[in-house]
Write a protein that binds this DNA or RNA. Structure first.
Lengths: 209, 209, 209, 209
DNA sequence: ACGGCCGGGACCCCCCGTTGAT
DNA sequence: ATCAACGGGGGGTCCCGGCCGT
């Protein structure tokens, strides 16, 4: 017999995830000591490790959450739009999100992405667990491109998979760029270049904006 | 009175840097424990920390070395070529470099780049020290683009700085992509897209390769 | 919700202090390695440093405990009596104390005193924190002398503060003498001299004992 | 065939001893790292360890030097005078000594004494090596008292050995007091008390000074 | 469900003393 | 005789996770 409602349990879990995301983003995986997780989450070791087996599992849960959100966003708006959103939100620090309180902070998102990449390099076991998530994003991108091409909005002289990889390359580049806190500068116009390169075989004229 | 010649000292220093680069790349900064550094380098704590004040300094030296090599390469061959080289070398693991024994392993290079990005996020002091290196690469890219445009090989309807940022975005994307060990797949054709987007306002036909 | 009662916590703390005192006394501050502290206390690093921030704090707690006991003893029985007790207890090693189990072993006391003196010399920050404790002992000595003089048991041709310093000098001397493990020999009769010098302007005849 | 004169060798040795004494006094035995000894002495490890087998031997040499000076001073002027000198010199910090450049700084002397006491407690082997030096000082004190009594300057109703121990007690007290950097205050008048207690059975009037 | 106490592994770095070159 | 380079042991401390009591 659960002493608290399932809803409360889920809320607790989300609270832990949110705090953990912030912590991992700010300090990195190793830098996010259990002590700091406690402080950020507002619960103690016992509570945290009651919900997640260990630090690794907690991190994986955070990362999978982010990945799921991203898959959905890509499927609905496309990778380019994801990048533009990223840019907008990075532009206004601390600006309250317009998609609800569950929307992960952009800094947290970026940080988590980078931490994932680090663990992919150094931890083969993690890589295995993560492969499915990664493919889900790629698949969502390809499917959307497929729909877009059918609508005539995507150049047809290049394989879809190549275009998808091109967009992923740009996305990865943005993640790294923003996560390193480098200046935003003309990133908006850079994204214009990216979009045109996907749209028109000729690259075409720059859209006026 | 130096016990060993300056040449030997420099060689020793390079040996430490090489081992450290491999270690940082394989295990990440925190994962590269002193024990592992000893094993990889083949020297003892005492020797290593005689040449470098502490682990942080050692890492910084590795990163600055890589940055210097990269600045030079960009100035000579351009960022696109750097990316193609990256791709070629990533294609054949363990293949002996054709630029001499001092050429850093590509895996080491990539890993270092990512570790730099992590520390940039989490360590403001490091960010300050690194800013100059970062700008040097950007500057080299801009200067080369300037020369290329004068030669008519670069589109003239877009600001150079935007094109430079576009290339840097693609480069960052490649670093992240490769460092995460993701499949190379059609990355070569993706780079073609990148190159064309920089070259011709009209995008033009894909070069046959 | 405390897992253990406050009493148990306090007991644990005292157990750590007792072991630490023995360790510091036997090996000195630097010689009292964490490993030895573990062995002596019977608890692990984790437990010890859960109660005390670091080795320094643990040592300070031991020293302050000893100082508090000494202030009280001086106030009740006077410095001369403290010295005689010291002598008696040094005479019979391992003899169970007659003042309860919390009474610090004399060897521990002495060793701590000497370690305090070392840190006073080498660590100005420690000196500042310790000044108050030192003055408390001096003050207790002066107050007791004041009462004794009123009772006619102390010579009146010398300033009280000088007499107090004389006694402190003798006390310091005893600490050093005993801590160095030098022979006790006629120390009892030496203390007679000290006492007489404080009591009678003329030094007077030796009391028969 | 010595490549340098014996005098130069001795000078080098003295230079090392002087620097080491300062270092041991300022930082304590453990705190006097080889690095600091190098800095203070102005020579490197190799040079230092060429003249002294290891740190322990160096410390012992410093201590024995000090002890020898003290034996001589006690024999010539008596322990009370040694204490008064100590006091005078402690009174004027940095005052150039009037007994030549080989006269150890008072701070160094005191620090060494205390370090000796620490090692006596914690290192039985050291205690054995030191016993002879300790007895030499005591012997010098007794012999001088013997001569003084013959001259009628010392009370005759107390055993000489007790008086000697009394003086040693006071001396040890001064060492501890001064080494701890406590205020000098009325220490001069305290020494008057000590002297009178040794001189006259009746104590007698305080000398005017 | 939660939290404080605790165990013990491992971390980085310091430190002493040796070696071989000069 | 002197010193830089070096080996490797051990220092304190942090840190993760388990264990009970509440």
């Amino acid at each position: 017999v659960p002493r608290v409602s399932a809803a409360q349990l889920k809320a607790r879990r989300l609270r832990i995830l949110a705090g953990a995301r912030a912590c991992f983003a700010r300090y990195g995986y190793e830098g996010a000591t259990v002590r700091r997780l406690e402080d950020e989450v507002g619960l103690s070791r016992g509570a945290i490790f009651h919900h997640f087996r260990d630090k690794e599992s907690l991190f994986l849960a955070v990362a999978e959450d982010d990945a799921a959100v991203m898959v959905e966003t890509v499927a609905r708006h496309g990778l380019v739009q994801v990048m533009r959103d990223l840019l907008d939100r990075a532009d206004t620090t601390g600006k309250p999100s317009d998609e609800g309180p569950n929307e992960p902070e952009v800094a947290g998102w970026l940080g988590t992405q980078l931490e994932v990449s680090r663990r992919l390099r150094t931890d083969p076991a993690f890589a295995t667990r993560w492969a499915a998530r990664s493919e889900a994003i790629a698949s969502a991108t390809r499917q959307r491109l497929h729909r877009q091409r059918a609508a005539g909005a995507v150049r047809s002289d290049v394989d879809l998979s190549v275009l998808a990889q091109f967009l992923e390359l740009a996305y990865d580049g943005m993640v790294l760029h923003l996560a390193m806190g480098r200046p935003l500068a003309d990133l908006g116009r850079v994204l214009d270049l990216v979009e045109i390169a996907v749209r028109h075989p000729a690259g075409g004229p720059l859209r006026d904006s």
